[in-house]
Simulated assay, not measured.
Amino acid sequence: MTPQLRSQLLAGLKDGSIVPYLGPGVLADVRNPATGEAIPADSDSLIIAMNGGKPMAPKLMYEFPRAAMNIELKRGRTTVTKFLNRTYGETTWTRAALHDWLKGIAPHYVIDINRDTQLQDSYADVPHNLIVGVARISGTAFRYKIYFWDGQAYQPSELINTAIPILFKPMGTPRPEGVYIASDADYVDFITELMGGFSIPPEIKELRKGKQYLLMGMRLNRDTERMVMADMIWSAAEPAGWVFIAEPTDKERRYCKKIGLEILQCDLHEFIGAAIAA
């Protein structure tokens, strides 16, 4: 990465023209302080944690939504929700270096497909909007909930105040309530409505026009995450942005070229100036 590009990315994150899009890799250095165990964030680690520390059958290890669907069919949807609440809402974790770094920049709009609360913790000192993805709910076609953080608690809201920070957690969060997109059925419902325009608030559809995106901690070799991302960044500038992938596959190269993302073949934590334990 050239010094000029680095300066461009940092300036864009600060002025809001570049939107951070956070994936599981941003939590690579997060540990349970009591046990030293890494936080389950990517597909494999989530599946193993959900299954009591053991891998599932190879066909279920393909992707977390498939494994979550299997658990849901056997033991009910609440089993998956309780696991995610326990993992992200009831367990203490160390802070991610990326989140501390991003807090110093304080972007106006952030998309975080992880289900932890560290992004929300970073903005706890300031009023902000929180958008949370939901699925398989009756009575409405919309697949999101909006909350306003007043500095003390989250309050349900009908509108987004675009003058204050906006945190978009499409895959859910335990705070203020444990709501998640997790199983295959959740993703099918959410993506169907996302493609129809019902999973993104109208204020965001307007705000996102002409933005560029910096994908951090993301791999683009899974169709599910690619479909969500492609619709989340709809109406982006050209080119659409950049993605950190140190060793991209041919499939990722083709996809990024198609969608207008430049691959940055460098380490994310080197970019932010943080070292992580092996």
Rank of each mutant, 00 (worst) to 15 (best):
D42F: 07
E193A: 13
S199W: 06
P239N: 06
T94R: 03
G133Y: 04
Q212C: 06
A28V: 04
E252H: 03
I39Y: 03
I204W: 10
D121R: 13
A240D: 00
K103I: 06
S45G: 02
K74V: 10
G12F: 07
E262Y: 06
I71E: 13
I160D: 02
D100K: 11
D42G: 09
R219F: 11
R86S: 15
A28P: 00
G210W: 05
I137V: 15
H108M: 11
S235G: 05
G197T: 05
I191Y: 04
T81Y: 07
S235R: 15
R175D: 13
S138T: 15
Q4G: 06
E158I: 00
I18F: 06
E206H: 15
V19S: 10
G12Y: 09
K145Y: 09
A67I: 05
Y255H: 10
E158P: 02
T173G: 06
V243E: 03
K74P: 10
Q8E: 11
Q152Y: 14
M50D: 12
T94D: 00
M56Y: 04
Q118N: 09
Y180G: 04
I259C: 00
V228H: 04
R143W: 08
E262H: 12
T2I: 07
R86T: 13
R175T: 15
K258T: 12
I113P: 02
R254N: 07
I259D: 05
R222I: 12
M56G: 09
S17K: 09
V188I: 15
K257P: 07
A182K: 00
A230D: 14
I200S: 08
P165G: 01
D189P: 03
K257H: 14
Y255K: 08
G76C: 11
A240F: 00
D223R: 15
A38S: 05
I276Y: 04
V228Y: 00
P174A: 11
P3M: 08
L215S: 08
G210A: 01
L10D: 00
